[in-house]
Design a binder for these strands. Structure first.
Length: 561
RNA sequence: GCGCCCAUAGCUCAAUUGGAUAGAGCGUCUGGCUACGGACCAGAAGGUUGGGGGUUCGAGUCCUCCUGGGCGUACCA
């Protein structure tokens, strides 16, 4: 299908309903603010496609009975528009609107014209936005919870782009500080063990086998030179070496997972002379939110909703992680983002309030910084939880997960749940290439459609240039499918506003289900050429919506399986 | 102790941010292919939304207390 990306969306059905209601209110002598008219999609299809509770809300203020008032509003509603064919008062006083068949059919034609551009909106108005996610410390391989963060962040970014935001993605690398020293000491110990020395492994070091592999990459001659130097110096050099390897490794794992970042931001840059760490500290001091106690400098975060004050500069003169993170957000502020979203791991949620306090002190407007929390993932195999030991003979990393169940199933499973709820990842189910596995259910619908379209072409049924044949559609299964396709733009906007990519995953399952039902009842390719063409257009519209949804989720949309 | 998150069908989770009779998938039971992909479809059973109280036309959703789990509560990151 030819896609025409320049087509204007026009006035949506919902805004036309809003307008009509506004007009009816005015005729009744009531002024009403557009914002107060809240439309929603009823759960029960018999309640129509769009429902409005405005009569319930307003009747009380006017001392009228909701149902009577609703009836009065309905009486004044203009019936000129042909996209609505039924308006009724129902329940306690809801006003329900049902889309006409003509409207649904017009949308199918529109989806065919727009192709992948269907669902694009200007909700964001081009606002500049940054999403920072994963940002796991480069002291080891990415683990499962980072994989979840990667899937969620990437999907959210695509949703935001689709709804008109200018989004930049970023990974914050903590490439400096005490943990890098610890990493260096750990690698140093592994290297000496490799040389045959008996050494005690650092108590709070990183025990993973990966450091043994990295130690093997150090040439013994080169390494020995370092050993002759000062221990601290050697640890730093080894730490830097390990960091480089691990960062490259993290990037590759993410690449294999299909997640790319526009920027990898290195914390070390903030610590340079005149850098943001110094600047942030200066701002804190200017705003008089810093005091000295026990030789350290403290931020009065408790005055901004944090439980207690936090140290910015330790008594030994070094900055804390918190100061660096505040400095990092100063850097984000300076880069001019209108809005910033951070996706944190579950172990960092205590960090949120103090970071928002710091951002406010540094001049961020209210709501500038949104922080989402990705909750823990438990891996379940054969009904039992897999223990995630750091040493792990059993797998725990993103790379292992991808190798086991594949990127598609991993992402789909991560995106089925609300991000701030714990997730049980059913490995046994994710591995299955059967109907029990929801990711295949959705992908199968796409493959089936592709196959049918191919078949139709073989049988000589072609996409018509003139889409008037769509008037022939009207079976209940056809209408249900169309109704699901029509809500796609609205669904995307809701997901964008709430930062909830999982809504789209649920939606794909709903679209796939209504397609399979339709397919089962309605023969697509038949002797009736007009009807065949109409159904072909409907099927292609379904394919477009599924393919676009899966693209946003980062899951492949196969034509064959 | 204090703070934040979570608790919905046997299991894993939804529920359009306060809407109408709380929905899907898996599992269980019953049925459906001589035409486009049966990796599919139809039906059944399954609930005092952890518990009590409150707010209102209306609560799974909001406020409060209780129970049970997770995380945080470092001059670690």
């Amino acid at each position: 299908m030819v896609s025409n990306r320049s087509e204007k969306p026009g006035l949506s059905a919902r805004s036309r309903v809003t307008e009509a209601l506004e007009k009816a209110f005015r005729e009744l002598g009531q002024e009403i603010d557009r914002e107060e008219i809240h439309l929603e999609r009823p759960n029960d299809p018999s309640h129509g496609d769009v429902s409005c509770n405005i009569a319930l809300v307003e009747a009380k203020k006017l001392g009228k009975k909701p149902r009577d008032f609703a009836a009065a509003v309905v009486e004044r509603l203009s019936r000129e528009d042909d996209f609505i064919d039924r308006i009724e008062v129902a329940g306690p006083g809801f006003i329900n609107f049902s889309f006409s068949r003509k409207y649904l059919v017009d949308q199918v034609a529109r989806i065919n014209r727009l192709g992948g551009a269907y669902g694009d909106s200007n909700l964001g108005g081009g606002r500049k936005l940054q999403v920072e996610f994963v940002s796991a410390n480069p002291t080891g391989p990415l683990v499962i919870v980072s994989a979840r963060a990667a899937a969620v962040g990437a999907a959210l970014v695509e949703i935001l782009k689709k709804t008109g935001y200018a989004v930049e993605t970023e990974y914050y690398l903590n490439d400096t500080g005490s943990q890098v020293k610890k990493l260096g000491e750990s690698l140093l110990a592994r290297f000496r063990q490799r040389l045959g020395e008996e050494v005690d492994f650092p108590e709070d070091g990183y025990p993973g086998d990966y450091l043994i592999d990295i130690a093997a990459q150090i040439s013994p001659a080169q390494g020995r030179k370092w050993l002759e130097r000062e221990p601290g110096e050697a640890a730093t050099a080894f730490g830097t070496f390990a960091l480089e390897r691990i960062i490259a490794w993290i990037k590759k794992d993410l690449e294999d997972f299909g997640v790319r970042f526009d920027v990898y931001f290195h914390e070390s840059g903030l610590h340079q002379e005149g850098g943001e760490v110094e600047q942030a500290l200066r701002i804190f001091r200017e705003k008089e939110v810093v005091y000295k106690e026990d030789g350290a400098s403290w931020f009065r975060s408790s005055e901004f909703g944090d439980e207690k004050d936090r140290v910015l500069i330790r008594s030994d003169g070094t900055p804390t992680y918190f100061l660096a993170d505040a400095a990092y957000h100063l850097n984000k502020l300076k880069r001019g983002f209108d809005h910033v979203v951070d996706i944190f791991g579950p172990d960092h949620h205590g960090h949120i309030s103090r970071l928002q306090a710091a951002a406010a002190v540094m001049g961020a407007g209210p709501g500038w910084l949104d922080v989402l929390t990705v909750q823990w993932v438990r891996l379940i195999e054969e009904g039992k939880q897999i223990k995630m030991s750091k040493r792990g003979g059993e797998f725990e990393t993103l790379a292992d997960l991808v190798a086991d169940v594949g990127a598609d199933a991993s992402k789909f499973f991560f995106l089925m749940r609300k991000t701030n709820a714990h997730l049980d990842f059913n490995l046994t189910l994710a591995r299955k290439e059967t109907d029990e596995n929801p990711v295949y259910y959705v992908q199968y619908a796409h493959a089936r459609i592709s196959s049918v379209i191919e078949y139709a072409c073989q049988e000589g049924v072609e996409f018509p240039g003139d889409m008037s044949c769509l008037e022939l559609l009207g079976e209940p299964e056809e209408l249900e499918l169309m109704r699901n396709l029509v809500i796609f733009p609205q669904l995307l906007e809701g997901a964008a506003l709430a930062n909830e990519p999982h809504r789209l995953t649920t939606y794909t399952q709903q679209v796939a289900a209504s397609f399979h039902r339709f397919y089962h009842i309605c023969r697509i390719v038949s002797r009736d050429t007009g009807l065949s063409q109409a159904r072909l257009l409907l099927v292609e519209a379904t394919r477009i919506v599924l393919a676009e949804s899966l693209r946003i989720l980062g899951v492949s949309a196969p034509r064959k399986m």
